[in-house]
Amino acid sequence: MTVAGDRRRAPGGRERPACAVAAAAGAGLVLVAAGRTWATVRLSGGLGGPARPVAVGGGELAPALVPLALAALAAMVAVFAARGALRRGIGAVICLLGPAIAVAALRGATAGRAAEAAAEHSTLSAAARAASVSVVWAWPAATLAGAAALLAAGLLAAVRGGRWPGMSGRYERAAAAAPRSARPAGARSLWDALDRGDDPTAGPGDRNR
């Protein structure tokens, strides 16, 4: 039987990598999108002057995006460190983080929210008003895609994660499968050799002399 066959038959052989990739891709997509411009607002000073464009980023429109994405990444690391019911519970938390990111993105990607955010950091007078708002829908859509990927990863961990081995499972299996002769001798065997008058550090040739 090949190593690839063992991995396919092992519990979570394909599910664990798929879960990790989905979570990393989803959280990464949200972080990237949060740092991009989601809307361009043209503010008028109210005195007949020309409107000035103000770029507003996703992190300003939806401040919760970055903390939620980082929390999802931390939770995914905890998924692989945990076992059993605890792992399923953490997967359920990731399931909730996905919809929370989607709701934050949808609330932030509106013309009204963009106008408010632009007016907050505008150098114009308090009479400044939004003359026009142009929303770049590609980045909110990318955020929703990242939220969907996190939701899928969380569902996979919550439903199937209880069957996956822990991080040290393969090392424990390797140690159990190792031949007894390959394992290091303990202190007890050294004392037994000394009681017999043997030198435990001597090779076979030295003992026959």
Score class of each variant (00 low, 15 high):
Met1Tyr: 14
Thr2Ala: 15
Ala4Asn: 03
Arg9Met: 09
Ala10Met: 08
Ala10Gln: 08
Pro11Val: 01
Arg16Glu: 03
Ala18His: 04
Ala18Met: 02
Ala18Gly: 14
Val21Gln: 06
Val21Thr: 14
Ala22Thr: 11
Ala22Trp: 01
Ala23Thr: 07
Ala24Asn: 02
Ala24Leu: 10
Ala25Trp: 01
Ala25Cys: 03
Ala27Cys: 12
Ala27His: 02
Leu29Tyr: 02
Val30Ala: 01
Leu31Asp: 06
Leu31Val: 01
Ala34Phe: 08
Gly35Thr: 14
Gly35Gln: 13
Arg36Cys: 03
Arg36Asn: 07
Thr40Pro: 00
Thr40Ile: 15
Arg42Thr: 13
Arg42Ile: 00
Arg42Trp: 05
Arg42Asp: 11
Gly45Cys: 13
Gly46Cys: 11
Leu47Trp: 03
Val54Lys: 02
Ala55Leu: 05
Ala55His: 15
Val56Arg: 02
Gly59Cys: 03
Pro63Glu: 11
Ala64Met: 07
Leu65Ser: 00
Val66Cys: 08
Pro67Ala: 05
Leu68Gly: 04
Leu68Gln: 14
Ala69His: 14
Leu70Asp: 11
Ala72Pro: 13
Ala75Leu: 12
Ala75Ser: 15
Ala75Ile: 05
Ala78Lys: 00
Ala78Tyr: 03
Val79Pro: 13
Phe80Gly: 10
Ala81Asp: 15
Ala81Cys: 10
Arg83Ser: 09
Ala85Gly: 09
Gly89Val: 05
Val93Lys: 00
Ile94Tyr: 00
Ile94Cys: 08
Leu97Asp: 01
Pro99Val: 05
Ala100Cys: 14
Ile101Ala: 01
Val103Ile: 08
Gly112Ala: 15
Gly112Met: 11
Glu116Asn: 04
Ala117Phe: 13
Ala118Ile: 03
His121Asn: 07
Ser122Tyr: 02
Ser125Leu: 12
Ser125Pro: 10
Ala127Ile: 00
Arg129Tyr: 12
Arg129Pro: 08
Ser132Ile: 03
Val133Pro: 02
Ser134Gln: 13
Trp137Leu: 06
Ala138Gln: 11
Ala141Thr: 13
Thr143Phe: 05
Leu144Phe: 04
Ala147Met: 02
Ala148Pro: 14
Ala148Phe: 04
Leu150Cys: 10
Leu151Cys: 05
Leu151His: 02
Ala152His: 08
Ala153Cys: 10
Leu155Lys: 06
Ala158Thr: 09
Val159Arg: 13
Val159Cys: 07
Arg160Met: 11
Gly162Ala: 09
Trp164Glu: 04
Gly166Thr: 06
Gly166Asn: 12
Tyr171Arg: 09
Ala174Lys: 00
Ala175Asn: 11
Ala176Thr: 14
Pro179Arg: 09
Ala182Arg: 10
Ala182Ser: 15
Arg183Ile: 08
Pro184Glu: 06
Ala187Cys: 05
Arg188Glu: 14
Arg188Lys: 07
Gly197Met: 12
Gly197Tyr: 15
Gly197Glu: 07
Gly197Lys: 15
Pro200Trp: 10
Thr201Phe: 15
Ala202Phe: 01
Gly203Trp: 11
Gly203Tyr: 02
Pro204Thr: 03
Pro204Ala: 13
Gly205His: 08
Asp206Gly: 06
Arg207His: 15
Arg207Val: 09
Arg207Asp: 11
Asn208Ile: 13
Arg209His: 10
